[in-house]
Structures are given as C-alpha cells and as structure tokens.
Design a protein around this nucleic acid. Structure first.
Lengths: 207, 207
DNA sequence: ACCTGAACACCGTTCAAGT
DNA sequence: ACCTGAACACCGTTCAAGT
C-alpha cells in the first residue's frame, strides 16, 4: 500500500504535532520523514530545508494568535484584560512560542494585541507619543513576563535555594522583616505578580 | 612541542571565548578540542560532557554579575538605578545571558540585584508581602524587558512592516491620531520604553 | 512535477587501550 | 591520573537518478 501524495501542509501539520508533543528537539528531518512515511529528501522538495520549515511553523503560530477582544468597563480594565488574554494565549503554546522567540518574531506575534491597545489608549484620552509609550510599555511587560515565567517553569532545583539565602543575612544589610523574608522564600505566584505589575503600570501611565 | 597539561579552567576559558566571539552554535566539542590542541575525548575527562560544560559556563556568568550598587537620593530613584544597572550588565553579555535563559537560570542570576531591591523597598517603608510584590514585579520587569530587547535586535526584517500596518486601517477601529501613528511606525527607543515602564511601575507600587 | 537512495561532512559520546 | 584514536549512532544537506 502506497501513501497518497505528500503536500506542504501535511509536512507542516506533522512537524507541528511533533513539536507540540515531544518538544522542538524532536523535530529532526529524519524523524519527520519517518512520521510521514516518506524519504527524508522528499521533505526538502516541499519546504526547502529545516530553516524554512521552522520559519513556516513560526508563521503559523503567529497567525494562530487571532484578534484579542478587550473586556471591562473602564479603559484601565480593558487594557489589563488584553494583557491577560495575551498572556494566556502565549502560555498555551509554550514550545512554539519559544521557537517564535528564538527566531526574533515575538513582536510580530504581538501585533493584533497592539491594535487593541492602541484603541483603548485612545479611548482613555491618551494621544500621540504618550499613547505610544503606554502601548509599548504594556507590550514589553506582557511578552517579557511570559518569557520569564516560562523560564521559571523550566528552571531546575537551584542550590542554594532562595530560602537559605534569605535566612542567613549578608553583612551590611539590615534584616528584612520576617513576613518579607517568608514572602520571598515562598514560591512566587506568577499570576499575582503579573496582575500587580500590569495594574501598576497602567495606573501609572493613564491620565 | 607538546602542550602543557590541560585543566578544567582552561577548557572553560576557551569555551567562553568561543561563545563570546562566534556565538553558542560555534561551541562544539570537536572545535573546542581543536582550539585547545587536544583530543576531543580529553575534554570529557575534565568536564564530563557538553551539558555539564554549558552548566559550568552559565554558573560562571551568574557569578560574574557582581553586587549591584544603588544610586540616587530617593528610594524610587535608587530602585530605578538598580534596574538600569542590571539591564546594562545583562546587555553586555548577550550570548551568555541567552544561555543562562535557555537553562532556566535567569532568576538565579538576578539574586544580587534582588538583595538590593529588598533593601530599598524596606527603606521606602514597604513591609511584608507588599515589599515582596515590588521586588518581584521589578525583577520580572527588568529580566523580561532585556529578553524582549534582545529578541528585537535579532529580529529579521519583518514584512509587513509596522509602518504599512498602521497606515491602512483595519475596519471597525477608529483611526488613531497621526502623531500616534507616526510614533508607532518609528523604530522603538527601547531604553526610553524601559525607563518609562520602570518609573511607572515603581511609582505605582511605592507608598 | 515529485520522489528516491547513496554519499558527504558534520555532531556527541563511549570505550578499550595507552602512559 | 590523564590522554588517545577508533567506533557508534546520530545530524542536515546535496545530487544524480528515477518515474
């Protein structure tokens, strides 16, 4: 039994599935060929080479992040809702987002959300460069936060643990209050940090 | 003429130089061996394997980021100065910082700066979980910003350019003012975005 | 137009053998 | 204790040859 004709879309689908299920390292040309049931070299006819294949996958991911719909009564709430929606969308595609990041296209991916932010900044009464500043600040904030967050999740157990570091004081600094020490030693609630930061940023930049 | 005995430090030095000058992709065991003038397999005796070698390089980078000295009259100024100093330190080691990030140790690298931030938050009158919130928010902000910034610098020319996207309006959204459109189309002054965001964040979280 | 296998120049790693 | 070359199982890519 011979397989039906290979198509570029089929190659991309299978490659995306491979990345989603086994991570980017599993996406080798030989493994992809095995998965497709074709010779390795057939893939080259359809997608050029590995580099172009990754480019195409990344372009797909960017396209997948559809329009962001702001929710809430006030402009501040609506801006925060855009930030939260974007964070969630990014977190649902960890491997692919990492690939987008590696290829320097993180900002391109952010464009639909940027449109929504422009709209809200305008509605809030911000004009010109002050509006642009808000848009860029939120953009950097959200993307940066997601990158840091992903980083934390992959982090190995890190000796010395933060707990130890804050239990023994370095010379020259006054001991922080016990509650602060406890708060710093506990695992970080990244969602809470995200909300606190976005709200403070928006409050600081809206008129 | 035979070379002097190989040491672990010599391996790490040469590996670091390779990464600094030619990027992480240039760090292969075979090339490293050629650079050192030894057999490939000798390296394994000193550093175990490639993974451990990268771990050691990353640990070095983390150690290199020494103590951060806050400057300025008010707590807000001093916190902002810590953020700026950290951003500069990270930007001076782009390849190695990327490796730290890939290995999930970005936060570990941030620890000296975190101590300084705790000190300043305390001096500003923040206590307990509110102080911890400020520290974490600034930490995520700075690291995230640097990651996004690095990403921008590597970004290829991205058709469609932002200029085109903001020139033609999508249906349903009111046209933003011309100055805003110009500000969004122009290349982003990332340093300015950084300062605006950090200042707004700190202002929003200090008492 | 599409697919193939053979071949090339690379990888990281293991291991038995040397000194 | 330290170093070596040979060998293994992988890579991505090219290319002449098939249909």
């Amino acid at each position: 039994m011979t397989r039906s004709a290979l198509t570029r879309d089929e190659v991309l689908d299978t490659a995306a599935a491979l990345v989603r299920e086994h991570g980017p390292a599993a996406l080798t040309m030989r493994r992809l060929a095995a998965e497709l049931g074709t010779a390795v070299t057939s893939i080259y006819w359809h997608v050029g080479n590995r580099e172009s294949l990754l480019d195409a996958l990344v372009a797909r991911t960017v396209a997948d992040l559809g329009t962001i719909r702001p929710r809430g009564a006030t402009p501040a709430e609506r801006i925060v809702s855009v930030a939260r929606a974007l964070r969630r969308a990014l977190r649902e595609r960890p491997h692919l987002v990492a690939m987008v990041h590696e290829r320097g296209l993180t900002e391109r991916m952010f464009l639909p959300a940027q449109r929504a932010l422009v709209h809200e900044a305008h509605a809030a009464g911000l004009r010109g460069s002050r509006a642009a500043a808000l848009v860029h600040a939120v953009q950097f904030q959200v993307v940066g936060h997601v990158l840091v967050e992903r980083n934390r999740e992959r982090a190995p157990a890190q000796p010395p643990a933060e707990t130890d570091l804050w239990a023994t004081e370095p010379t020259g600094l006054p001991a922080p209050d016990p509650e602060l020490a406890r708060a710093l030693a506990a695992p970080v609630d990244t969602e809470a940090v995200f909300l606190v930061a976005v709200r403070a940023l928006v409050a600081g930049l809206l008129p």
